[in-house]
Design a protein around this nucleic acid. Structure first.
Lengths: 253, 253
DNA sequence: CGTCTATTTGAGCCCCGTCAAAGGCGGTGG
DNA sequence: CCACCGCCTTTGACGGGGCTCAAATAGACG
């Protein structure tokens, strides 16, 4: 039970709790995952590559990971970030091969979960099944919001919106302290996620800083004015579907 | 059985067959959906709006539909197109409210399917359940490819890629004749899907025409050179996961 | 036949990309 | 402990792809 009581292992429980009320039985069932062996990966390594055949579901326990796609000429697009408590491709073993890659940003710890464990959980614990579905659908909704970000917002708004989203998501899993959190993305990372160049990302970050919205340096983010950050980027957290407790709309957690 | 033998009602069966081998029992089970009453909607109407509470799964039988999101200042982003055989939000009733809207492009016919019918099908017919999952995951993968499109490709490539995707998807459900298909999107529609302006879409379509790749007018698309269209836009159909029959890579169906 | 929207084209400009270079910072090996 | 190296950060100058504004034409629809 050591791992189950560690803050890292509670992350998943806390995250699923945001959507649905889980029983003690559900919690005990989830602890099974906490007892599975942890794996580690260095920073800037691929966990799985486009074309590979996925065999396990990965639960991120610590560290940051991204999904990305590449074009034949080398252009890269980051299509999503995964933070502790997120699953890599909850049900991707239905498809035979990956259409994108998953790479680490920082060193990561993760639990590789055999498909039958997921199947068993989903069959036996309907509320957990529902919560897993919720994760998948939120992931989906997040991608739609990113499409809006890339298609309609200005560079300044794109970056503000990305930072607002990540801050709110981190806060939801207990990885913020007041207005501060670790933020390991480099400017080239932000560029690949927003479809901008690293040079322009740098200029926009400076603008966000001088506008008093954020302070980002040395992998440490301070959101000086979350309300304003959400306003300028027209960040509407409805797509994260934190519907049970309203953690998000109380903007100064 | 009239509706089940109509070409429209066979679309779903044909589409699911692309992924998995369905039995006669599966087919009979799917026919239940074909016997449900059809609904119609005019062109340019919303089927459901952001904030609404979804109560049914809709199967598009004929016509084109899009998902879109709007910003408070009125900017719109189309985040996906649905063609006959596609489901609107197969499992969206897990979430309490829509984070995006769904609107018709053309007049549409669709089957509103009560959640319990879906649940029953997925519980009783595992291959159908798997095929439904596949739909959802392909939808997901398509959104990732769109992110790549918006973030990394030039305007010319964006439009070429969108057209290539739609042509291949239409061909997969039998809605092309040789290199020709109906294509009801207006230039403003394409603009909202690619994050460009309608004016610039017009210029790029002209370029695609003079380059001999496509001929698009009067809602009728001819793909004069599919191979070249796929090449210039770096279209890789792997994300559509037509893995059973290889319908796509045989480029001249 | 009138109205509304879509299509098409031109002129000019601006946001963001490109190219370039300097400085900072962490990691690594001698 | 320091020197070196690679990557990240930062800034400037300049150029271009796509946007804005504008207007004319063509279809679609009632």
């Amino acid at each position: 039970m050591i791992s189950a009581t560690a803050p890292e292992a509670q992350r998943l429980y806390r995250k699923l709790q945001q959507f649905t009320q889980l029983s003690e039985f559900d919690r005990a069932a989830l602890d099974e995952i906490g007892r599975l062996p942890l794996l580690r990966a260095d920073a800037r390594k691929d966990l799985i590559r486009e074309g590979d055949n996925p065999t396990v579901v990965r639960l991120i326990v610590s560290g940051w990971v991204c999904r990305y796609k590449t074009l034949p000429d080398g252009r890269r697009q980051i299509v999503g970030f995964l933070v502790p408590g997120d699953f890599c491709d909850l049900n991707v073993y239905i498809l035979r091969q990956m259409d994108h890659s998953i790479g680490s940003i920082t060193p990561v710890k993760y639990v590789p979960i055999p498909p039958d464990v997921i199947d068993h959980l989903m069959a036996e614990r309907p509320r957990i099944a529902q919560a897993f579905w919720w994760q998948e659908l939120v992931n989906n909704a997040t991608q739609r919001e990113w499409l809006m970000n890339l298609g309609q917002r200005s560079a300044y708004e794109k970056i503000a919106n990305l930072i607002a989203e990540l801050f709110v998501r981190l806060r939801a899993v207990g990885l913020t302290e007041g207005s501060i959190c670790e933020f390991p993305l480099t400017q080239p990372d932000i560029a690949e996620a927003t479809g901008l160049t690293a040079v322009h990302v740098n200029r926009m970050l400076r603008a966000l800083r001088t506008d008093g919205l954020i302070d980002l340096r040395q992998k440490r983010l301070e959101v000086c004015n979350l309300r304003a950050l959400m306003n300028v980027s027209m960040f509407n957290p409805n797509y994260l579907h934190f519907e049970r407790e309203g953690l998000v709309t109380d903007a100064d957690g």
